[in-house]
Design a protein around this nucleic acid. Structure first.
Length: 805
DNA sequence: CCTTGCCGATTTTTT
DNA sequence: ATCGGCAAGG
């Protein structure tokens, strides 16, 4: 037993937190408002359970939402208890289920080396099935069909359940596709994401003795973010936490039950995953499910200023059917929220960039403590463009992930083929990558032979002649097959992961094909492959016992938020969903427009608007001190730009906590004077025809009388977007926007010069530059092909950024 | 069997 | 706007 003093563990907790941490009963619900220290309560509770002798670490199962959160929690408990904390399971639902399924693979009829299909894999498989089954004639798309399948599996249904009306041909087609999909996965010895959860539940239901084993082991189950659990996860918790353990005899069991605890932590106001089956009723019905349960409410917020909380409370209070809850803090009002309305997405992004620069310079906020949130991943583009121009280091969390790149998927497919030769999808992917002359026809022959002889595709590679393939192709097939088999044997023989992988990629010809390409873009892919190989090496170094299969599993279950690296001195960009559970000193929430936030898709979904509001609430409550809300009156989507209305959610925020830099009214009506006089939005006329060589000429700003207000259309119109995007050509000079008077700059055509002075800010900032040869020119900093050559010497007059607001 | 070029669909959020 | 799929030509 650890010698840690339980009182030391509970130190520094407020009364409610402390009560939760040392609650002795069997079932506990902690309703934890945003920033109220729930992670703290969870870790202290785990430590308390162990330190007081109520639990051995190995009896603890703690479920978190991301792997990163799991790692943090494990670390923090270790920090409290040291070695005494070894042996806990702290992981996501998916990782925990994976571990169980690997151990019990036989009972579910799988080989323990099964692989995991990600969304792309599932989609590829479903696509093939729909094609084979002519399911597409019923209007089924791979994504659509999978959506239904996923929803059904989250509800723990199977294709054999009654439910779909046989009379409905679409429903029947869907069910047949689903059935075929499950069979194909089973043949491939693979699970998809949803399988990890529902197959574990099915396993426990079909094998009570196995369930009992885990139930006996995990006497103490703790679940974070309980509001976002779906039905399968709910069922899993019930099965594991002894909800079903009646009927077993003996007094010792009863005694053991007394030492059993279930702790769930969550906040129904932060439930944002209904779209993937999360059911708030899991948390709202907790007291009903566990009548003896105790509920503890945490309302004191330790994260945000009062102004941020006032906005958050006001926004969420518009949701009906919620338990009243009011976050409060004793840390003071803090700065007001800032609002900004851009004329375009780029203008909005410029505001973000300017504000980042300002906060860093004036308030000393580090890049790593700032984050920009958005509703949809598509919004990153404009933000990235302007951040790059502003010289702001940033990092996109999630989005198009490294592991989704084609070349990375290729390599992973090679590795899967080694570990799990039955995985037809992966083997097919690599058959002709690099080009071996194996096309559709040959691939089908191989697959047919494999199916007829009940062999894996990899096995079939050695039987080219039997498949009816010409000798030349058969030889190449055999080479690939041998490379895969040899790698497998090398690994079994104890060869290091990295060596084996490197040899495979070399011998299969994959890496040489990339490296020898004349196309620099293809060579860049080789770098990504190198990156992946070094990840393999890192993994092997950190997990000496682990195999290739473990690496692949980790890759599959790594989420967007997991690779958020605090050490990187960069601004974080992410969706509002990804932001859950994080906090930053400074938060920008962008795109506060009707149709975006709230999103169009939510309009006719029942409960959709409430969920959008919670999403906004989650975003607001990530901010510690600075919070900026922005929108644009125009937004370009799929090549079409349209005018946008400010989000209804903005109306909920009390005026006294929000200060508009430029309000929606200014942006849509008379406030155009500033714009017109600055040359922005109109400058297209001066710049010359977009797309012509003339774009490189300087933007000479002339003052022109402002048009009469009543004649002004909403600004900017579509043309200014065109102007912009045509000006920002790839390879154009990346002029930093944090220019100072005295800086030395280089212009594409005018050569080098010195900045004499700066006026305006952001997209409309204008630099007066004295060029060595070309004389004095006025340039719009955001548009001109300028690069900074040298900064003004420190010995010179102290200069500051010229910014006006 | 591979390459090219055109057409159509896509687009909410993610383990 | 961008990507993937399909058809036609090499």
């Amino acid at each position: 037993m650890p010698d840690t003093d339980p009182n030391a563990i509970l130190e520094g907790l407020n009364p409610q937190q402390r009560e939760a941490a040392e609650y002795p009963g069997a079932a506990l619900l902690v309703v934890a408002g945003a920033g109220s220290g729930k992670t703290r309560v969870l870790t202290r509770r785990i430590a308390w359970l162990i330190a007081t002798g109520r639990a051995w670490p190995s009896q603890i199962l703690a479920i978190t939402f991301t792997n990163k959160a799991a790692a943090e929690m494990r670390e923090r408990v270790h920090g409290l208890l040291g070695e005494a904390a070894r042996g806990m399971w702290v992981s996501t639902f998916h990782s925990a289920c994976l571990r169980i399924l690997r151990a019990e693979a036989k009972a579910v009829g799988m080989n323990s080396s099964f692989t995991i299909y990600d969304t792309q894999d599932s989609r590829a498989l479903m696509k093939r099935i729909l094609k084979e089954q002519r399911g597409d004639v019923y209007g089924l798309t791979p994504a659509g069909a999978l959506h239904h399948v996923s929803a059904a599996k989250n509800e723990l249904r199977t294709p054999d359940d009654a439910g779909a009306r046989e009379g409905d041909p679409t429903a029947r087609a869907l069910r047949e596709a689903w059935r075929a999909y499950e069979q194909a996965k089973h043949r491939a010895n693979a699970f998809d994401f949803d399988d990890l959860l529902c197959e574990t539940v099915f396993l426990f239901r079909a094998h009570p003795e196995i369930a009992a084993r885990y139930r006996d082991r995990f006497r103490h189950v703790l679940v974070d973010e309980y509001q976002d659990t779906n039905h399968a996860q709910y069922e899993l918790v019930r099965l594991l936490s002894g909800g079903e353990s009646r009927g077993e005899d003996s007094a010792s069991d009863a005694a053991a039950e007394r030492l059993r605890t279930l702790t769930v932590v969550g906040d129904s106001d932060q439930s944002i995953y209904a779209f993937r089956g999360a059911d708030v009723r899991n948390i709202t019905g907790f007291e009903h499910d566990f009548p003896e349960a105790r509920t503890i409410l945490l309302e004191q917020n330790y994260r945000s200023t009062q102004n941020v909380l006032t906005a958050a409370n006001a926004v969420i209070s518009h949701n009906l059917e919620r338990t009243e809850k009011n976050l409060w803090t004793d840390t003071g009002a803090g700065p007001k929220l800032v609002g900004f309305t851009g004329y375009s997405a780029h203008d909005e992004a410029q505001f973000v960039t300017d504000e980042i620069v300002r906060l860093r310079d004036d308030e000393g906020v580090d890049y790593r403590d700032m984050a920009v949130f958005y509703r949809t991943n598509a919004q990153t583009r404009a933000l990235e463009e302007i951040l790059v121009r502003g010289g702001i280091p940033y990092r996109v969390v999630g989005g198009t992930k490294f592991y989704e790149r084609a070349e990375v998927k290729d390599v992973l497919a090679y590795l899967v083929a080694v570990v799990n030769p039955a995985d037809e999808l992966s083997v097919r992917r690599i058959l002709n990558v690099p080009k071996r002359g194996i096309g559709q026809v040959t691939a089908q022959r191989i697959a047919t032979w494999a199916a007829e002889h009940d062999q894996t595709l990899v096995e079939a590679l050695s039987h080219g002649a039997d498949c009816g393939v010409g000798p030349r192709l058969a030889g190449r097939m055999a080479e690939l097959g041998e490379a895969l088999r040899d790698t497998r044997e090398a690994l079994a023989g104890g060869r290091g992961l990295e060596t084996a992988v490197t040899q495979l990629l070399d011998r299969s010809g994959y890496l040489p094909a990339l490296q020898n390409s004349p196309d620099p873009q293809v060579q860049a892919r080789a770098e990504n492959v190198d990156e992946l190989v070094s990840q393999v090496a890192d993994f092997a170094a950190g997990n000496p016992e682990a195999g290739l299969g473990d690496f692949l599993a980790e890759v599959s279950l790594t989420s967007a938020a997991d690779d958020l690296d605090d050490a990187a001195g960069a601004v974080s960009l992410m969706t509002l969903h990804t932001a859950k559970g994080l906090e930053f000193d400074t938060v920008f929430i962008t795109g506060l427009e009707e149709g975006l936030l709230p999103h169009q898709m939510s309009f006719d979904e029942p409960g959709g608007m409430s969920e959008e509001r919670r999403l906004f609430y989650v975003g607001i409550t990530r901010a510690k001190r600075h919070l900026a809300l922005s929108l644009s009156v125009m937004r370009t989507l799929y090549g079409q730009s349209k005018s946008q209305m400010p989000s209804r959610f903005l109306d909920d925020i009390p005026a006294e906590v929000l200060e508009w830099r430029r309000s929606p009214e200014e942006a849509t009506r008379g406030g155009s004077a500033e714009l017109e006089n600055s040359g922005w939005g109109r400058s297209r006329g001066e710049v010359g025809r977009p797309g012509r060589a003339g774009w490189a000429s300087p933007v000479v700003v002339r003052h022109r009388e402002a048009p009469r207000a009543d004649a002004v259309p909403p600004i900017p119109d579509r043309r200014s977007e065109v102007t912009w995007s045509n000006l920002v050509t790839p390879g154009a000079a990346r002029n930093t926007l944090s220019l100072q008077a005295g800086d030395r700059v280089r212009h594409r055509r005018f050569g080098e010069g010195v900045v004499a002075r700066l006026t305006g800010s952001g997209a409309r900032q204008i630099a007066v530059v004295d060029f060595d040869d070309a004389g004095r020119k006025q340039l719009v900093v955001a548009l001109a092909p300028l690069a900074k050559v040298a900064t003004k010497h420190e010995s010179d007059d102290p200069t500051r950024h010229i910014s006006e607001t």
